[in-house]
Design a protein around this nucleic acid. Structure first.
Length: 863
RNA sequence: GCGAAAGUGGCGGAAUUGGCAGACGCACCAGACUUAGGAUCUGGCGGGUAAAACCGUGGGGGUUCGAGUCCCCCCUUUCGCACCA
């Protein structure tokens, strides 16, 4: 076996500084720590290495990974996410684009406050320390970010623009103040985020204390103003995963229906009051035999006032409902209700029907009141059966045959198409027709109207917490709510704050912060002490990257216009709703303000799968966490990145296997050793382009090279199955190993060998930047491989000259023949029939059919 | 309950349009080199058989010359939604 020829070691001597074939095995050894440290130090010297160009003539490409929360250390999910984005960014650079690939920190949020409490570190210090740590990890991993555009949301130069946007929203009536229910722990005496309420409905710090619902004044962003557009524009987001679009569609939850007012029947109630009911099936209203109220419906309090014994029952219903909501099985709640012994009047029929309060009616959808039509709704049916309420059929199925008599359907009959009966003047109509006519009639008569209901609620952004953007509002006794004037921004978050979880918002106890002057009257005013939801920060951060140091505006619209929309956004599917819907809202709001021209922030969205180990998500409690630092120390950054791309297609979950990354490490070493043996940078012959005439063996190497370039390029353009890209490169390297003897015997022209090596480095560059840079230098190339041109494949060179065709007889594989790629059908069939095994298989049979699928296979059908 | 995705060797996965199932990698086995091997190189590796035949992509049916891929029914897993009126 010939392992390299001695002259090839010329490349090594300037590299490892040693010589002599005897020491070969040691010199050839790939030491990722040595190589990666070397390049890490070099890259550190050049801050502008990955900077996007300004005023570039090149086509732009904005690739973005979702910014992390600086929790302390990177985990493998981050590594995978950024490895995908980094590969794409590097590929696009090599394709000649002006690439924007920034990174930042979603650095406000609760964990910093918890850390402050548990280790007495100020949130700012803790957060900035984590950022420094994670940034160092990212650099060590070799991610090509333009750090000159780094955005840190917890710093005033960023959050002042949150405040500025808040003022703009306020000016336009898109932010308003409203009482709203919040989770309140009586022991902590503070508000809890939903995430801090345990499954049993208790406080996370006091697991024996049930959380109460309290009404608090909160700031709300009127995202519902854009509900329709947020829904409609989903159709344009063709390069978003269908799953995400569906989730957003459901989240917006548009539902067309009719509002109908049922007047309260006189005795004892407030005169003229009525119950507004939302229904999608007003055509069934003559079948309504009761009205059902949510236990938390405002009218219920009124009923209780007139009928005290009701209170206990209602409390029970509320408790049942809340518990079911908390445990997540509101769908399976056993239906309970209580009769108020009051009546409502069906405005269509004039009929008096009883009013009930039921635990399955929720206040936060529709109007919190329904008309109950047991005959045509499963839930109403179940309830009516239980409480012996009347079931009245008002829709019949439409018979296919007009002669056929309509039979009464089995109840409940949830009809989508049918004909109304027992419905007064609206009898005999199709359902669709009845809905249209009855809605119109209700509107005409002034007791209802067609309407659209959304599940989407306005976005409550007030948080009674310290580590967030202060809401720039003042409360003046004389002037009421007064916005902080723009020129007084930012409202700085005070550094010295005593963070405890008692007594409400930490800021409310900082008197220097709270006490302010009213800009209108000059009198004393009190500052808003709530801070903003951190989703505000992440709703527009990617615009800031385009103009990160602008001190006069969040960003320059012209600059943003060059870069937007984001060409490719990459992140976890867990952000499919909140972050991505708030971001879409913010873009539309900024567009309507005239700041930008794009309707949507993100052109293409990619959601990568989770990193799991031993079948479960990595978590400290399971003890199956793999630390990136350990992986870097043991195998190197390239190996960690490459493995996270190789182990599974990026959209699927990745099952981390420690032995798997060893295989990648082996592969990287294999590549390195081949180059150490075969690079001949000083040889002019090796630098030349490959000759046109090649031996079959040389030709097969060249063919494999072009096939590999094609496979890798196609995947970048299309389906992103980087796992198969990497296996394709492995195959190419395996071919090169198999050819070493031929190389030694000079059967492969040096010119081709050089060409193949240069291309192997280019193909590896997006995935394994450290090794690629090392090899590029080893090849004697000038400049960074990052700015080398991505190779183009030659279809003719990738083309096989001879192909192996499987021959089936009656669909079973019986033989293989080798034919020229361009062979005619008749020739191929003839050769197939001449094959010994095929002959044996068809012996004594009658040939029925001969099928040749060009270039693929032959199937002979014989009986 | 509704919706979506998935189910392929001992394992991760490949098969891009209906055309050789198991690429590539791991693990394992054998050989080479070696003072040594948890390094490296070479070969083998779905089941079955002496070799074939034959059997094999969750199960059952179907379409087709041909099905992992298309159609129907069922099972399992994961994710999302869920009295949404």
């Amino acid at each position: 076996m010939a392992i390299g020829d001695k002259s090839g070691n010329a490349a090594v001597t300037n590299e490892a500084g040693s010589g002599g074939a005897a020491a070969r095995s040691n010199d050839e050894r790939y030491d990722p720590q040595r190589v990666e440290t070397k390049w890490f130090e070099r890259w550190k010297q050049d801050a502008s290495l990955y900077a996007a160009e300004r005023d570039s003539q090149k086509k732009k490409y904005y690739v973005l990974e979702m910014l992390p929360y600086p929790s302390g250390v990177l985990h493998m999910g981050h590594v995978r996410n950024y490895a995908i984005g980094d590969a794409l960014a590097r590929y696009m650079w090599m394709k000649g684009y002006n690439v924007l690939h920034p990174m930042g920190w979603d650095s406000f949020g609760l964990p910093a406050e918890n850390a402050a409490i548990s280790n007495h570190t100020p949130p700012r210090e803790w957060t900035l320390g984590n950022i420094a740590n994670m940034k160092a990890q990212m650099k060590r991993l070799g991610f090509a970010y333009d750090w000159s555009r780094e955005v840190t949301t917890c710093l005033p130069d960023y959050y002042r623009w949150n405040q500025w946007f808040f003022l703009k929203l306020y000016e336009q009536g898109l932010v308003y103040r409203k009482k709203s229910k919040v989770n309140w722990c009586p022991k902590c005496a503070t508000v809890l985020a939903n995430e801090q309420v345990l499954g049993n409905g208790c406080c996370w710090r006091h697991d024996d204390t049930p959380v109460e619902q309290r009404e608090l004044e909160q700031w709300f962003v009127r995202i519902t103003k854009y509900a329709e557009e947020l829904l409609l524009d989903l159709d344009q987001l063709k390069d978003w995963p269908e799953k995400v679009r569906t989730m957003q569609r459901n989240w917006v939850g548009r539902s067309e229906g009719t509002l109908v007012d049922f007047k309260l029947d006189g005795n004892g109630g407030p005169a003229g009051s009525s119950i507004s009911v939302f229904t999608t099936r007003v055509d069934t209203i003559y079948g309504a035999t009761s009205v059902q109220l949510a236990p938390e419906h405002p009218l219920v309090a009124d009923f209780i006032r007139h009928n005290q014994p009701l209170e206990a029952d209602v409390r029970k219903l509320i408790a049942e409902q809340r518990k079911a909501k908390e445990t997540g099985d509101i769908g399976e709640i056993e239906k309970h209700g209580v009769n108020t012994h009051r009546f409502a009047v069906n405005p269509f029929s004039g009929e008096k029907i009883p009013i009930w309060i039921a635990n399955y009616i929720v206040m936060d959808y529709g109007t919190g009141a329904i008309m109950s039509v047991p005959a045509h709704d499963e839930r109403d049916y179940e309830f009516a059966k239980k409480y012996k309420l009347e079931v009245r059929l008002v829709i019949l199925p439409i018979a296919n045959d007009p002669e056929e008599t309509m039979t009464e359907p089995q109840l409940p009959f949830v009809a989508h198409a049918g004909m109304t009966i027992n419905s007064g003047r609206f009898s005999g109509l199709s359902c669709a027709d009845a809905i249209r006519k009855m809605s119109a009639y209700a509107e005409e008569q002034g007791f209802g109207k067609a309407t659209v209901t959304y599940r989407l609620k306005d976005w409550g952004i007030s948080r009674q917490r310290y580590w967030g953007t202060p809401i720039p509002m003042l409360y003046c006794e004389k002037d009421g709510i007064v916005p902080v004037p723009e020129d007084q921004l930012p409202v700085l978050l005070p550094a010295k704050v005593d963070i405890t979880l008692t007594g409400g918002s930490p800021l409310s106890k900082v008197s220097e912060f709270v006490n302010a002057t009213c800009p209108k009257c000059g009198g004393p005013a009190r500052r808003e002490t709530d801070t903003m939801d951190t989703f505000v920060d992440s709703s527009w951060y990617f615009y800031r990257y385009t103009d990160a140091h602008n001190e006069r505006a969040p960003f320059d619209g012209k600059v943003a216009q060059y870069w937007f929309p984001i060409d490719q956004y990459i992140g976890g599917v867990e952000h499919a709703i909140l972050h991505l819907i708030y971001s879409r809202f913010w873009t539309k709001f900024m567009r309507d303000m005239g700041m930008i021209t794009n309707d949507e922030p993100v052109e293409r969205l990619f959601t990568q799968g989770m990193v799991i180990k031993d079948g479960a998500k990595m978590s400290k409690s399971l003890g199956n966490v793999v630390s990136p630092d350990d992986m870097i120390a043991q195998y190197g950054a390239d190996a960690a990145r490459l493995y996270s791309l190789f182990a599974a297609p990026p959209d699927r979950d990745l099952d981390w296997q420690d032995t798997g990354i060893e295989g990648i490490q082996r592969f990287l070493g294999r590549v390195y050793r081949f180059f150490v043996r075969q690079a001949r940078p000083g040889d002019p012959e090796w630098q030349k382009p490959a000759p046109a005439e090649l031996s079959p063996q040389a030709r097969s190497i060249q063919r494999k090279l072009h096939q590999t370039i094609k496979r890798v390029s196609d995947d970048f353009q299309g389906r992103w199955h980087f796992n198969t890209c990497i296996s394709a490169i492995m195959e190419l390297v395996n071919v090169l190993y198999g050819a070493e003897e031929a190389i030694a015997q000079r059967l492969v022209p040096l010119a081709l060998l050089g060409e193949v090596q240069r291309n192997v480095v280019l193909l590896l560059a997006p995935f394994a930047p450290y090794l690629a840079h090392e090899l590029w230098e080893m090849l004697g190339e000038q400049g960074s491989v990052l700015h080398a041109r991505w190779p183009e494949y030659d279809a003719a060179l990738a083309q096989e000259e001879e192909i192996e065709i499987p021959v089936q007889v009656n669909g079973k594989l019986r033989g293989r023949i080798v034919v020229p790629a361009e062979a005619e059908e008749a020739f191929v069939i003839e050769r197939a029939l001449a094959d010994e095994k095929v002959k044996a298989a068809v012996a004594g049979k009658q040939m029925v059919k001969k099928i040749y699928v060009p270039g693929k296979m032959v199937n002979l059908v014989a009986k």
